[in-house]
Amino acid sequence: MAVMAASVHGVREDRAGAFALAYILVRTLAGKAWERRGEYVPELPITQLGLGLTPWVVSMWFDGTERYALWALGLLIDLTVMFSVSGTALAARVDARYARKAREAGPGRRTAAKPAAALMDAPHLGERLGLFQLIVLGEAVAQVVAAASQAEWDAALYSVGAGSFLLLLLLWSLSLRHGADGVPLLVWDVLPVRLVLPPHCFVAGAVAALAAGLGDAVEYTHHPVPEPVRWLLCGSLGVYLAVAGVAALCSGRGAPGTLLLVGPSLAVVLVAGAAARQAEGPHLVWLLVAAAAWTRLVAERRRPGRRGRPALPAP
Rank of each mutant, 00 (worst) to 15 (best):
L171H: 08
A148Q: 06
Q133I: 07
A255I: 09
L170T: 09
W286M: 14
P55W: 07
A122H: 12
V136Y: 03
L288E: 14
L210Q: 07
L249E: 04
L249S: 04
R309L: 13
G257W: 01
V193G: 08
L131V: 05
A248P: 04
H9W: 11
T111V: 13
G254H: 09
G238P: 07
P184K: 00
L51N: 10
A140L: 08
L261Y: 09
P304F: 11
M1T: 12
V8K: 06
A116F: 00
W172S: 01
L131S: 11
S251V: 00
A89G: 08
T80N: 06
R253P: 02
P42K: 01
R309P: 03
H223N: 05
D189N: 13
L249T: 05
W34E: 14
Y23W: 15
H222I: 10
W286P: 10
L171D: 05
E139V: 15
A247T: 03
E152S: 09
V94E: 06
Y158T: 07
G17E: 11
L70A: 13
G179S: 01
G87R: 01
L260V: 10
H200R: 08
R103Q: 08
V136G: 02
S149Y: 04
L297K: 04
L232S: 11
V26D: 12
T47I: 07
W172H: 11
V94Y: 05
A92S: 11
P304A: 11
V229Q: 10
A299G: 13
W71A: 13
G205H: 04
P315M: 03
L191E: 12
L166H: 07
E66W: 14
L167R: 07
T295R: 02
A22Q: 05
R100T: 07
S173D: 11
D95C: 05
L134A: 09
A92P: 00
L21P: 01
L53G: 08
D14C: 05
E43D: 12
D181R: 09
G126E: 15
R230S: 10
L51A: 14
P228Q: 08
V193I: 13
P42C: 02
V298K: 08
